[in-house]
Design a protein around this nucleic acid. Sequence first.
DNA 1: TCTTATATTAGATATATTCAAATATCTTCA
DNA 2: TGAAGATATTTGAATATATCTAATATAAGA
Lengths: 141, 141
Amino acid sequence: MGSEAIKRSLEEIGLRCTPQRYAVMAFLMGCKEHPTAAEIFDAVNRVDSRSSRATTYNNLRDLVQAGLVREVAVEGRAARFDAKGMRHHHFICDRCGHVEDVKWYTVRKPASLSLGKRVLRECEVIFRGLCSKCARRRADR
Amino acid sequence: MGSEAIKRSLEEIGLRCTPQRYAVMAFLMGCKEHPTAAEIFDAVNRVDSRSSRATTYNNLRDLVQAGLVREVAVEGRAARFDAKGMRHHHFICDRCGHVEDVKWYTVRKPASLSLGKRVLRECEVIFRGLCSKCARRRADR
DNA sequence: TCTTATATTAGATATATTCAAATATCTTCA
DNA sequence: TGAAGATATTTGAATATATCTAATATAAGA
């Protein structure tokens, strides 16, 4: 997505394309990791120190709410974020908390499974275990 | 599980059966909700004011590590806990953050799906949407 | 260019969680 | 039983994470 495309997608959802908001979006889109809010704040300000912590949080909240960004909660650690591009599932490392993408596949909800009066919006799989780095470290010892 | 059973399962994993730890475990087992650490602290102390916040957190950490309790991270909210009885998946309400159990079924990892050098330990499905209470409220308006 | 709704900022505050050191309690075995 | 040593708990303070406030600035349409 080019810079114009980011601008357009922000405007489509009724958010102004401010430099700070644009920077968050552009960073997330160019980032294969799943950074925390603090990491996003640092990265954006490393390039051009013009954003505050509160703005970073505000923008992340708005972008998540608008559906452009996904927030992944991780047990005992800060939340992580990624731009919603291709749909995907997540792998979370039990040891270091790292979040990685797992290629999307459709999860079929078994016909027998009742969700009652709940409204289902989404259905994702969380894989847990050791990321390749932690798996290697463990094998070394 | 009776009180003896709790005692035994704690000792099996090398944790002493202290009043505080027992209280956390017993409360979680008798609780259909998925309480936060703060709610667990309150509930345990409502009965018998003998535990501190730090102890509650310490015990939860130990119980999670030992595999008797599951921690569920929820976006933008405090973590929630439940005793691992029957295996189950989770439904998280996007609106109120409520966590509910969903009947367990085995998730087949597609043969085509490579997790690379990662070590897979667990695979759970997170359903997201509106819980029945929030769905009703929304329909009312 | 002007206007105005929206966004940003710094710092204060709230909430969630962990840490460190002192104290208490178990367990073992003499 | 009763020391001694190991383990657990408590407490208050520290840290991490996230949100709020109110003053100020700015994007974008008229």
